[in-house]
Design a protein around this nucleic acid. Sequence first.
DNA 1: GATGAATGAGCGTTCATTCAT
DNA 2: TATGAATGAACGCTCATTCAT
Lengths: 190, 190, 190, 190
Amino acid sequence: MKLKDSKKERAIIDQTLDIVYETGIAGIKMSALAKRVGISPSTLYVYFENKEDLIVSIGLRLLKQINETQETTDARDTSFEQKFRAMWMDMLSFMLDYEKERNFLDQWKQSPYFDKVSLDAWNDHKKVNTALLQEGRETGIFKSLNNEIIHAVGAGIADQVVGLVKQGSLNLDESTKSYLSGIVWDALKK
Amino acid sequence: MKLKDSKKERAIIDQTLDIVYETGIAGIKMSALAKRVGISPSTLYVYFENKEDLIVSIGLRLLKQINETQETTDARDTSFEQKFRAMWMDMLSFMLDYEKERNFLDQWKQSPYFDKVSLDAWNDHKKVNTALLQEGRETGIFKSLNNEIIHAVGAGIADQVVGLVKQGSLNLDESTKSYLSGIVWDALKK
Amino acid sequence: MKLKDSKKERAIIDQTLDIVYETGIAGIKMSALAKRVGISPSTLYVYFENKEDLIVSIGLRLLKQINETQETTDARDTSFEQKFRAMWMDMLSFMLDYEKERNFLDQWKQSPYFDKVSLDAWNDHKKVNTALLQEGRETGIFKSLNNEIIHAVGAGIADQVVGLVKQGSLNLDESTKSYLSGIVWDALKK
Amino acid sequence: MKLKDSKKERAIIDQTLDIVYETGIAGIKMSALAKRVGISPSTLYVYFENKEDLIVSIGLRLLKQINETQETTDARDTSFEQKFRAMWMDMLSFMLDYEKERNFLDQWKQSPYFDKVSLDAWNDHKKVNTALLQEGRETGIFKSLNNEIIHAVGAGIADQVVGLVKQGSLNLDESTKSYLSGIVWDALKK
DNA sequence: GATGAATGAGCGTTCATTCAT
DNA sequence: TATGAATGAACGCTCATTCAT
């Protein structure tokens, strides 16, 4: 009796991320995906019920993974500014390291494969690091903005920076990262 | 002999923007589009060579249109801060007013219909308002950042704000807009 | 502008009846059907929405057709026995003449393509000739059976006779038909 | 070494009959069948060579079984009418008791799985009770009909009655059964 | 110019059967 | 014997595009 090969599942997911990165989520063709993985199209259906299940499963799995990764990043014992800027830099690094994953999530979110269930998981995922932002507000360090706007500023700048790095217009060394985190800080602090 | 009906062309474009807004760029189906416009599928091919031509033509036309619109926004005679913040608020308003157009451009950019030619036009389009940013740098008011980063800060925050407004989490009255432009200003000024 | 070809639709239906007669309703393959008709598989979808629509449409159309045909068979001015036996013989002839149609309806009825809507149409169709049976009961000529049983006797015998003729065990000349109608009459009369 | 498990074989056959009863012979899917039995799809192939073998084996086995069961039903010492009507009522009861089996045979007969070999076995099976019918003809009690027509009358009526009972239009108590057997008798007797 | 029928290429999916253990 | 993964050969269906009028 053959056992399900977890390497195969891994390969399917990786290739899917690559395809979405190259051609968009609409570019996923089950047969092309199978060919890239080196299996028969029907074998895909051993691992995922159908195309929708493939996409949604990967999306949910990525959200879970990201949450697990990020939870470990805010344990420091320095000033609030240092903690906050470190967190933002971590986020930026993360976004660069997991570019394909982020790209998949972005495309998934505005695709027809993104439904009610996915939305719940998505909202969970956005709550990460809310605690730190909350602290910034309550201690009167931040402007009196709601968390969503605070998050928007951090995420918006990071998004664009990632875009610049991706297209080669910006080289992100440590000092640049630090400099950028200063910008975010200036934007939010009173 | 009848000429191409420019109202019909307008209707095709409008319906395309709507479809992309509702279902994504991959949701464009020539027959469905024709039905929405109230014409036959084959008539579409009188106005556009094929699907790719339809999408690319719309994309290029939007880019051109946007440039024309934005050029008129910076004629004021007040302080630099006021001019800059006004420009940013204009940009924000513009992004909200032309939501469907922006959405089309976003989706187009990361679709297989976005090619070399489109990229050149796209880069042109981003140069808008560079002059003002340049002024900010040269007079030593802004941090010593290159224009791309300055643009990234403004655009990133605006992007996220638009997202919040779209999903109903933020009500954008004049005072909020002004408040937000202050954040951007704080981020960039020395 | 091409017009829908009603001969093509006719041909599709005829070939479908043939296929069902040869291989059963489960033997309908859209591509094989198209090949037999001499058109492309996709052209089938111009005339019918999908496989289910094809089958249900044919079924409903046959039911309607049969009702229209049968309504003209009972106008005679002879004794009740003669009228009844003539009606039964007509029914028998009809069943033999429209063998493929009957076969289609039989198979349709116990297929997954037979739904609520179909059932209503089906029940309408069975009401045919009820008037004559009713007369037989009310005048005290028939045994005191409900119409369903009376119908069952006539139809059951006719069914089996058709089976015998089809498999070549019985040659159905006029005298045999008359003889058989006598059996049915004997079964039902008091 | 384990032997083939006859309980497992029994379960496979039972589930197959159920599936055919529920969804038609075209609804047999090897994997679904396996799941219902509680075994692996591949285990089915230990008991039957392939899908055709499964169906044909079940069909032939049922035919054999039915013959064995029916042979014991005509041992009575009463009048010929009573014997005949008793036989018919037994047949009717049998048809109701073994509804799933009969349904399987009906569907099998007009499926692509019904071949030459099956036809021979089928014809054997129809010879049952011929002796009794023969006696009816030879003693001049029956109309001078060949056995096939006599059988057709009995079977046709029984078939339809079973249909009525199945769809709930007829409640088959003892007196109704007797009444119906009278109809059959009237149809055949001189 | 305008149309609706017609089509070929291709996609997602199913399923009987075999493979490897 | 028993298994679950793996697969190839189909099948139903879609859709951008062209044909014929």
